[in-house]
Amino acid sequence: MPSLDPAIAEVRLAVRNALVAVPETRVIVGLSGGADSLALTAAVAFEATKLGMSVVAAVVDHGLQSGSDAVAQRAATQARELDVEAMVLAIEVDDQHPDGPEAAARAARYAALARFAAAENATAVLLGHTLDDQAETVLLGLARGSGAASLQGMAPSRQDGDGMLWLRPLLTVRRATTVAFCAASALPFWNDPHNLDTRYARVRVRTQALPVLEAEIGPGIAEALARTAEQLREDAEAFDEMIHETIEDIVEHAEAGISVSVAALAANPAALRNRILRFVVDSEFGVSLSRSQTVEVARLVTDWSGQGPIDLPACSARRAGGRIVFTAR
């Protein structure tokens, strides 16, 4: 009996480990036709059958390139050849998105996948991000200087507010392995020309920054960045647990907003205090505070000298007696 190709074995094992946490039901695989998502789809098709699951491949056509509809249909055909149901989802991307075209496409893609998964009564959506994608995400977060939250990268598993489970089984798998999987499985894959377009920051990180780091510092940079993300996620989970244990005792609803106890904030170390402030504002007003905004609000606790209200996205913060009051604007 011929031995299993190592790339196929590695990808299948990663998928198997992810699927064991999913109820035995219907799952959705995001498929673009590229090597990562095609390897994921083939591995899910193999593993899900053994677990009694049904699989549907969702191919999102952003319509951003000429011939994208043909690419999407070809990917759907490949899924069907793997005995996987497939559906092409044509979407429109907001060309006025404040964070640019990459963010707009990502937001539209996730929204389409979420709607489709709900309509299919699926319990999980599987995405083909690899360890290389994780390393790029961490390096981009480091360049933005937006703190530990941006360095946590992508979670291998998360559940959204609607109860949908989003899984990234291949975050421990290198991109070269998915390419080798497709070669060993005789699966021709699509090379997205956007992946070579250096107008995009992620492409510059992929094609220029990471190769330079590997050459100048040594191999293993991508793995080190992925390990950093994993460790920071563990730290964040611990902080989140501490926040949830604390928050009900120190927060009160105020007129047109919410307030937090100064004494309780002052009693906590800066890292936890700042996380509580960001959590309160995000939960109440749906906006994220920057590092500089968070520090300014924290000064109302630690360096109070009568300063007036601080304008923030969607709200303002002021000190009133023993409380920091956040009011909608």
Rank of each mutant, 00 (worst) to 15 (best):
D303I: 07
R168K: 12
P156L: 05
I243H: 02
L82G: 00
Y110T: 11
T130N: 13
L64T: 03
N191M: 02
P211C: 13
H62N: 12
L64C: 02
G220P: 00
L40G: 07
A267D: 08
P98G: 08
M53Q: 09
E92C: 10
Q307C: 13
L277V: 12
P269F: 12
P2F: 11
R16C: 10
D95V: 13
F239R: 15
L127D: 05
Q73R: 14
A266E: 15
T177M: 04
I28P: 01
G218V: 08
E85D: 15
V27K: 02
R175G: 03
L82V: 00
A186V: 12
R319T: 01
I221Y: 03
P313Y: 03
L4T: 13
L4G: 06
P211N: 13
V287D: 00
A108Q: 10
A266M: 09
I310E: 02
D83Y: 10
L113A: 01
F239S: 14
H244S: 05
G33W: 04
I310S: 02
F285P: 00
L51V: 09
Q65I: 11
A180H: 13
I250W: 06
L165K: 01
R12I: 05
F239H: 12
A111F: 07
G63M: 09
R158D: 08
P269E: 15
L213F: 13
P6K: 05
A148V: 15
I247Q: 06
A266I: 09
G147Y: 00
H97M: 07
R144A: 15
A264W: 00
V93Q: 06
A238T: 08
S288H: 09
I243N: 08
R174L: 08
L171T: 06
V325A: 11
V71N: 00
H62G: 12
E230I: 02
D132E: 05
I28H: 10
A155G: 07
K50R: 10
H244N: 12
S292W: 14
F189R: 03
V44G: 04
E245N: 11
E237F: 08
V84I: 10
D240A: 14
H62C: 03
G100M: 14
V203M: 06
D61R: 04
Q78I: 01
D282Y: 10
G30M: 07
S316Q: 12
A124H: 05
D235W: 11
T77R: 14
V203E: 00
R106C: 02
A70S: 14
L167R: 04
A263Q: 08
A57N: 00
Q231W: 02
L151M: 15
Y200L: 03
W190T: 11
R115P: 02
P98C: 03
F285S: 02
L4N: 01
D197V: 11
D69T: 14
R319Q: 11
T41L: 14
A314P: 01
I310K: 13
E245Y: 11
A317T: 04
C182Y: 04
L210D: 10
P23W: 14
A43W: 08
L165E: 00
V281T: 03
A114K: 05
L187R: 06
V11Q: 07
A118M: 07
D99I: 06
